[in-house]
Design a protein around this nucleic acid. Structure first.
Lengths: 229, 229
DNA sequence: GCAAAAGTGTTTCCTTTACACCCATGT
DNA sequence: ACATGGGTGTAAAGGAAACACTTTTGC
């Protein structure tokens, strides 16, 4: 029997925390279908290219982020037959977590607040769904991994890390208990000798990312009644 | 520019607990490449078929499990260029968790202990890697979801559920603390009026699966020093 | 009666939570 | 001086771990 062959793309959900909001890197479409809608940056994979390689390439080519330091992990694969009206496309989505980097020089690529994208649904194809899945993955992973630090610059304060949690989760966390939890966690943070007053008040110690991946025991999101935003 | 088109398959990692071991449903190959090696059941997706539909179809056709009650979730997608020596194939893996059902009537399809598969590596293609990823996903999900019950028949005792945890994790758990944890968890278990003595000793209450998906707070695996097996 | 497994009680320990309070800077 | 945020202390609440003990069956 003959084997069906399909177009395969990689789409990127690249998240960052910017101006007190969770933002995704979105591509402004300039042609049909979904002309002028926002889509996730992505593209077809090449015949000799592994999936993570394609994701990195597209991160540079389409998202304008050639930097290797960005955390990239596979999110999920979407393949229902009519998700692209032109042809059948199976799309492997990758999730990227980035510090607040300057956006691409292209006007077409912009950091856009996730809340706006989700509530107003101006996303092309099934990209709203993919974006939601990426956001939920990020929210869940902050609980039991050290990935929140991927949203921070190489050196950051505990308060900056806390703001990542608060913005991604839409909650308020107690600064004092948060401090104890993350500084007490094994290899989550590596202290430096330096401090900063860029957030005002008493100087805060600067930390770098440790090599722990897991956070055990996890830091659970507060139950919904305490949510904010 | 021309769009490359690739063959896309769905591969199934179907796990169960059988005879005190974690087992996967494996397909005995009878042709090159990897003649006589074990592979995951799977097949090409059809042109008009969504991915979960293809997974269900292959679960019936190739795995011999037409039953809908089996938990099925997407695992990951594997696509490095030479993973199949014949042609480039992108494979979307699904993870299935099943109770100890009679295996398929086909002699080609057999429940095989995961330990043996992993340690002796008689798996075709990159299926050992996919199997490992599926097993690790299952182990992790027992911690913070109620998925362990997916390995149990419709009615089961707390001790049977505990054995699932012990076998999947390769640990020993305290029966008394485990009992309190799972019976106290919200909507994890729904008690029936019935009891059984099939495990010997004092009659044990039979429970059905509740509708909770999350288990919060999670039940963390004991640290490695307490591992068994 | 005895073995075996179910299930409860209890104590200890650890983590989280809530919040009082002090510290070190900029203005 | 005082506002601002950083960081520590501490007590109460909750869950996990360890284990003694009772219950209910089969043999």
């Amino acid at each position: 029997m003959s084997v069906p062959r399909l177009a395969v793309t990689v789409d990127l959900v690249v998240l960052t925390v910017r101006e007190q909001r969770l933002c995704a890197l979105m591509w402004r479409r300039d042609r049909a279908p979904y002309d002028e809608a926002w889509s996730l940056p992505g593209g077809f994979i090449q015949l000799d290219e592994d999936l993570p390689v394609a994701a990195s390439r597209l991160m540079a080519e389409r998202a304008g982020l050639a930097d290797v330091r960005i955390h990239l992990e596979q999110l999920a694969t979407y393949g229902y037959p009519d998700r692209d009206p032109r042809q059948r496309v199976v799309s492997v989505a990758y999730l990227g977590l980035a510090p607040d980097l300057p956006a691409s020089s292209r006007a077409q690529v912009l950091w856009t607040a996730v809340d706006d994208l989700i509530h107003h649904d101006r996303a092309a194809f099934d990209h709203r769904r993919i974006l939601c899945d990426g956001v939920e993955r990020a929210r869940a992973k902050l609980e039991y991994t050290s990935l929140a630090a991927a949203f921070c610059p190489p050196e950051f304060t505990v308060a900056e890390l806390r703001r990542v949690y608060e913005i991604v989760w839409g909650t308020v966390l107690d600064p004092r208990n948060f401090h104890r939890k993350v500084t007490g966690a094994d290899r989550f943070l590596v202290p430096t000798e330096r401090t900063t007053t860029r957030d005002g008040g008493r100087p805060a110690r600067l930390y770098g990312r440790g090599d722990a991946e897991q956070l055990r025991p996890p830091m659970l999101r507060p139950p919904p009644e305490r949510r904010v935003g």
